[in-house]
Design a protein around this nucleic acid. Structure first.
Lengths: 236, 236
DNA sequence: TCATTTATCTAGCGGTCGCTACAGAAATGA
DNA sequence: TCATTTCTGTAGCGACCGCTAGATAAATGA
């Protein structure tokens, strides 16, 4: 069904992503190893800037509804340049998802890593979600939640689903750790608590898409947090 | 951008939806008024059955990802028959949404109408959502939540968004009524409570799509319900 | 029997989709 | 200067999109 030169294109894109960037982005000579200068005609656009534009487009309209011609327009490059630099539409999307994760979607991981208890991590996550999902300057809600629903490419849909479920699993293991440490009661249903948190995050994201303001989402988060036994409720 | 015979097509579909159905579906003569028999060649398929097939397809894949050729295949009719009976793709989808609302999505309205308090209505809604969203035999989750996200036809997206927000507004006014009646404390933030309920429903729907079981959703609902002041907490 | 009405079938319209062949342009190393 | 390498612009591929014209089939009323 698809052309069979994909490997070729992917390889091209990969080299483009590593080496060619060094020529355009890193203006300071410096760099010790590897090729110091690229050979042929240099890229006429900044790869990261174009990637960010693609990110915003995918974030706003989703994977399917963002056509390649939409992408070339907002990235301000021709289709051949897009394919040379990023591979096909799907690998561009995958790269966008990676960048999104590190740039916009890392507050959950940070909360889980930095907060002392699961409850604190959830509290911080929900509060930060309220502000992140309504931030002006980029689309509302979470790309991972919305960008590949009802997608006719099942692999894309699954990859985002996996990310969502991995998030919930991370909450669950953090909660289990608190239960084991006696911070939470032994009878705590860690799986249900984690899933409740995931559902809240996803519901808040949907609400943000549907027009809810930051204050409204913060009020929702506040209510959702009241389900937690207060910190210090640890049993023996 | 579009052909301008849409009014024509819509008119055709409308008559088809009313009269032509009487010929095929109502086998008992009976019916008092109106035309007793249709004139031309009778429809070769059952309109309601075909509509149900379309409903399931839209429910599973969403508005955009379900192509007309997908529809004609699952409905087992030709494209001209589809257009004659239902108008264009969008009016078919709108009819599907109406049918979905009465057949699968009415549990919220019923709970709001039949339960004595807002809290009871929300409790019943969340519990029924857990079972409805994981029912075998049809796609999981809620069509209204998922079928028109990231839709390149803004009107379709908005029409479902309006339904979601109307649902939340219904919760809010029911909560306000309880506050006014002294069933809930006067300080109750009705808007936030309603939005929290909406977010839970939408989050549970997403969870159902992502593979959560009925039992898992029921546990989530249970947790979500614990935010409510117990029934009988009314102040003076 | 036959004109009328309505539904179905075949076939295909113009448009967009993701993607690429090809030729020319801009850099490098010799 | 010139071969080599790489990127860019034009132009268009085959496939699918939503949708429909036109011919034919099956019912009705006369």
């Amino acid at each position: 069904m698809h052309p069979m030169v994909n490997d070729d294109a992917a390889a091209k894109a990969r080299t483009g992503s590593d080496a060619a960037n060094a020529g355009a982005a890193e203006k300071a000579a410096g760099g010790g190893k590897a090729r110091t200068k690229s050979r042929g005609r240099p890229r006429s656009f900044d790869r990261e800037t174009a990637l960010e534009k693609a990110l915003l487009a995918f974030w706003e309209h989703g994977y399917e509804a963002t056509s390649v011609s939409d992408l070339t327009r907002v990235m301000d490059i021709g289709a051949p340049s897009l394919y040379a630099a990023f591979g096909d539409k799907r690998s561009l999307f995958e790269e966008v998802v990676r960048v999104y994760g590190t740039r916009y979607g890392s507050f959950t991981d940070r909360a889980l890593a930095e907060e002392p208890t699961a409850r604190d991590a959830v509290e911080r996550t929900l509060r930060e979600a309220a502000t992140a999902y309504t931030q002006p300057g980029h689309p509302h809600g979470c790309l991972v939640v919305h960008a590949a629903t009802n997608c006719s490419t099942p692999e894309v849909e699954e990859s985002l689903r996996d990310r969502r479920n991995a998030n919930i699993a991370a909450f669950e293991s953090r909660i289990r750790a608190d239960v084991a440490a006696g911070v939470l009661p032994p009878a705590t249903d860690a799986a249900a608590l984690a899933r409740h948190t995931g559902a809240m995050i996803q519901g808040m994201s949907q609400q943000a898409r549907d027009g809810a303001s930051r204050e409204e989402l913060e009020a929702v988060a506040e209510i959702a947090l009241s389900i937690w036994p207060r910190t210090g409720t640890h049993t023996g």
